[in-house]
Amino acid sequence: MKSNAIKKFFSKTEGYILLIVIVYCIIVAAVNPNFMTPGNFLDLIRSSSWYWILGFGVLLVLLSGGIDVSYTAIAICSGYVSACVIQRTGIENLAFAFFIAILIGLWFGAINGFLIHYFRLPTLIATLGTKTIFIGIMAALVGVEAINTDHLPAVFKDFGLAKLFTVPTETGAEYGLSVFFIPLVILGILTWFILYRTQIGRSVVALGNSEVSAERAGYNLFKTRMFIYMYVGALAAVAGVIAISDVAWIAPLSSTMIRGTELTIIAALIIGGVKLTGGEGTVFASIIGLLLVRLFETTLIFLGLTSSWQNFFTGLVFVASLSVTSLQRARKRRRMLLFEE
């Protein structure tokens, strides 16, 4: 019974991606023993926390059958505006920072949801547009000047340095579990709760399964869409504040921080086993998919490789993972002599 459950788990995409993660870790550790240290993994959690938080939001969008590419712009805008507000008002309070950021995230998300519902826009097109609109609003109303470490409000810098516990290493440096872990866990559980324990969460999955069926079942799809995109907006805002606190610095236009990661995160989720066409996907799949991609991103120097290899690996796993699932499905369907979708 138990071995059966394990077998079932590993036959799913999440399962074999977990296997790949483990194998990859062993390879890296074999090449460079420095990799297998607690400090390293604690650091991976720290630097990946905002990827995961963004991933939870993207999971909802993908589940609903949509693709959002504007959420990274929301993260930058809300984080940057929040930093500016605190810098200029002097209210050095973390809760206030999150409040401002989430407020903006919710608003931008609401714009997405509204456009997508009322104008029946394809989600990708709508968010491609709003992505630049959001940056534009920020540039016009707040500005785009970089805030360097010295000028960044202390509340961000302190938040970035705070740790739940620390582990000293023999060299005297201390690695620790960042407080980012707290919002990460809370939001992970919250996302899971919404998806599996609330009606609105089920309506998201239902929408991704079949829009017509969801409508006939009596779901209020306007509510569902607004919820999805506002939730993504709020999560993006949290991720934005965390990312800024992490590097203690923000240049909203010139830096690649957050910006440009939107497709990487979507790809990572799909690698993990979330279906691009909607309806299927779990919180665990998004965590494991992003973990693998983050491992590729952060272990190159351990392996002594240049950054082009990261793209190569991510692409390879992406294509391989999609090909394998698609091939399995096609074979199964072919065996059943089904030729239509």
């Binding site: 009606q199 089920r202 999955v205 239902a206 399964n209 079949s210 017509v212 069926s213 969801a214 006939r216 079942a217 009596g218 779901y219 279906k275 309806g279 299927e280």
Partner: peptide
């Protein structure tokens, strides 16, 4: 076309409409 949700379970498909109602 039955208007079911393909990737959801039998149980959920049966009970969903009632939950909404």
């Amino acid at each position: 076309d039955l208007s079911l949700f393909p990737s959801m379970t039998v149980a959920e498909n049966i009970a969903t409409n009632r939950m909404i109602a």
